[in-house]
Amino acid sequence: MKEVKVRKIKNGTVIDHIVAGQALNVLRIIGIAREYPRTTVTVAMNVPSGKMGTKDIVKVEGKELKEDEVDKISLISQNATINIIRDYEVVEKKKVKMPSLLEGVLVCANPNCITHFENIKSKFIVEKETPIKLRCIYCERVMKEEDIVKQF
C-alpha cells in the first residue's frame, strides 16, 4: 500500500514535482503569505519520487492558483506540475510554463541599476529558458541561473 504522508485536499491546487528543497522558495515566489494569508498550506519536502528521486510538494487548500501566479515557479523548478483539485479529483493538470516577462519576482544583479533606486518593480525578459537567461529591461544586464538561485 502507498504510504500517505500528506492528506488529500478537497479543493485547491497541488504543486507537484518541485525540485527537492525548493518548496519554501515556491511559496515565496507565489507570495503565499501576502496573497493568501488565511489559506491552509501544506508543504512536503524530500518526498520519494519515482521520476525525480526526491521532490517537494505544496498543497494550497481552497484556492485555484492562476497561471501567472504559478508560471513564475518555473524559475526554480522547470518541471513542476500544477494540479487543480475539485472535490478530491484532479480536474486539470499542467506543467508550469516559463513566462516571457518576469515582473517584480527578482532583483537585478547590477547594483547600479535604476530599479534599486526608484520605487518600481523589476522587469526581466526571458531570453532563454535552458539554461535560463534573463535580461533586465532597464539596465540590460543579463542574469543567469547563479544570479537567480542566490535570491531565494
Partner: peptide, 29 residues
Amino acid sequence: ENLIDTIKTVENYCDVIVIRHPKEGSARL
C-alpha cells in the same frame, strides 16, 4: 527628488527630453 517625479515634472515644460544619468536603466524608466 526621485527620477520619476523629476520626469513627470519636466515633461510639462518641454516637447522632448534628453537625459543623461549615472544609473543604468534610468533612460528606459
